[in-house]
Design a protein around this nucleic acid. Structure first.
Lengths: 209, 209
DNA sequence: TCATATATTCAACAACCATTGAATATTGAT
DNA sequence: ATCAATATTCAATGGTTGTTGAATATATGA
C-alpha cells in the first residue's frame, strides 16, 4: 500500500504506517498464530522495514497487546451501544439484542474469534492477558443479562454460567470454523442466514431454555 | 523417566523411548501449540537427545502426524465400541450413547480437544491433515446418528449439520477452557457433574431439540 | 567370542528470529 | 535557509531452531 522508496521521515506522528502494521498483524496473527508469525512477514505485508515495528510498538509482544486492546475496545463499545439502544425494553429483549450485537461483531471481524478461541487453548502470559482483556468482560456482561432474563421469566435455568460460557465460545468457534470447514459441513452460506441459524440454535435453544 | 547415561543401543526396536517422546510431545503440543514447541523441550521432557526424534519420527512434522493418528484411532475406536454396545436399541439411545462416549473420551484426554480446537483456527497443511483425520469422521458419525434419531421421532430439526458441528466444537471448547478459565466462570467442579451438565445443555438442549 | 545391526548421543550446520544502534531523509518551526 | 525532531531504513547482533553425519555403545545371532 505505502509506496515510499527513500528513507527518512515522511509525515507527522500518526501516519498510516501504524495502521497498516496493525492491520497486517491482525491478519497474520489470526491466520497463523502468534509464534508462527514473524515480524518480517508483517513488515512485508505492511510495506515497511522490520525495525519499524519494534520502534513503534516496542516489540512483538507490544504489537500483540495493541491489537488485542483495540479489538477489546471495539467489542465493548458494540455491546454498550446495543445495551443503550434497548434500554427501555424488557430483560429478555436486551439479552437478545446483546447476543445479536455480539454475533454481528464476530461476523464483521472474523479474525477476532480466532484469537479468542486459540487462546483458551494455549498456556502463556499472552493468552492470560487476552483472556482478561477480551473474554472476561464478555462473560460478565452476558451473565448479568442472562440472570436478569431468567428472573423476569421466573425461571432458573440450570448451569447458567456454564450456558453463557458455552454460548460465547460456540459463537466464536462457529464463526472461526466457517472459513475452515467451508461448505464441507453445512449448507448455510450467506451471513444473514448464518446469523439466523446461530441465534435460533444458540440463543433460543441453549441460552434461554 | 529414562535414566540411561551412556550412549549406544539399549534395547530392541520397541523400547519405551518412542512412547516417552510421543507422550511428551502430546503434552507440549497441546499446551503450547506446534510452532511454539521446540524439539529440544520435548527431548528434555522425554529424557532423550534431540536428534533421536528426527531419527525415529523423521522430523517434527512426522512426530505431529504420528500423534494425531494415534489420537484419531483411539477416538474412532471409542465411538465404534459405543455403537456396538447399543446395537439393539433405538436411534435416540444410540445417539445419546455416542455423545456420552465422545464426552468421556474428551475428558479423559484433555489434550485432544485442544489440538482439535486450535486447528480450526490455523491455516496450514498440518491443520488440514488434522481436520481430515480427526474432525471429519467425527462429523460424519454424528450427522448420521442425528439424522436417524430425527427420523425416528418424526422431527426434522432445522440446521441439523449445523447443530452437529456446534455440538462437537462446543464440547471440545468446554473441556479445553475448563483448565484455562478454572473456577473463574462456573461452579461445576468434578468430572461427573461436568459431563452431566454438558449432556443436559448440549445433547438434550441443542442437539435433540 | 566375534561381528553386525542399530538405538542413541554428540557436534556442527545453515536458516531464521527479534531486537538494537547507527545512519539518513523528511518534516515543521524558526 | 537553517536547525532540531523524528520516522524510517540499514546492518549487525546473539540466540534459537530443525536437521544431518559421524561417533559410540549395546544387544543379538552365529
Amino acid at each position: 500500500m505505502t509506496e515510499r522508496r527513500g528513507r527518512g521521515r515522511p509525515r507527522e506522528k500518526d501516519s498510516d504506517t501504524s495502521a497498516a502494521i496493525s492491520r497486517a498483524a491482525l491478519q497474520r496473527f489470526a491466520a497463523q498464530g502468534f509464534e508462527a508469525t514473524s515480524l518480517r512477514e508483517i513488515a512485508d505485508d505492511a510495506g515497511v522495514d522490520v525495525a519499524l515495528i519494534s520502534y513503534r510498538f516496542g516489540g512483538k509482544q507490544g504489537l500483540w497487546k495493541d491489537i488485542v486492546s483495540q479489538a477489546g475496545a471495539a467489542l465493548r463499545e458494540a455491546l454498550e451501544r446495543a445495551l443503550g439502544d434497548s434500554e427501555a425494553t424488557g430483560a429478555q429483549k436486551r439479552l437478545e439484542h446483546s447476543a445479536h450485537a455480539f454475533l454481528t461483531y464476530l461476523l464483521g471481524r472474523p479474525e477476532v474469534p480466532r484469537l479468542l478461541l486459540r487462546d483458551i487453548t494455549i498456556d502463556s502470559d499472552r493468552s492470560k492477558w487476552l483472556l482478561e482483556t477480551l473474554s472476561l468482560p464478555l462473560h460478565q456482561h452476558f451473565i448479568a443479562l442472562a440472570q436478569a432474563a431468567a428472573d423476569e421469566r421466573d425461571k432458573a435455568p440450570a448451569h447458567l454460567e456454564f450456558r453463557v460460557a458455552n454460548f460465547i465460545y460456540s459463537a466464536a468457534s462457529t464463526v472461526a470454523r466457517r472459513e475452515r470447514l467451508g461448505k464441507l459441513v453445512s449448507g448455510v452460506e450467506d451471513n444473514a442466514q448464518f446469523a439466523a441459524a446461530l441465534e435460533e440454535v444458540l440463543v433460543k435453544g441453549a441460552l434461554m431454555p
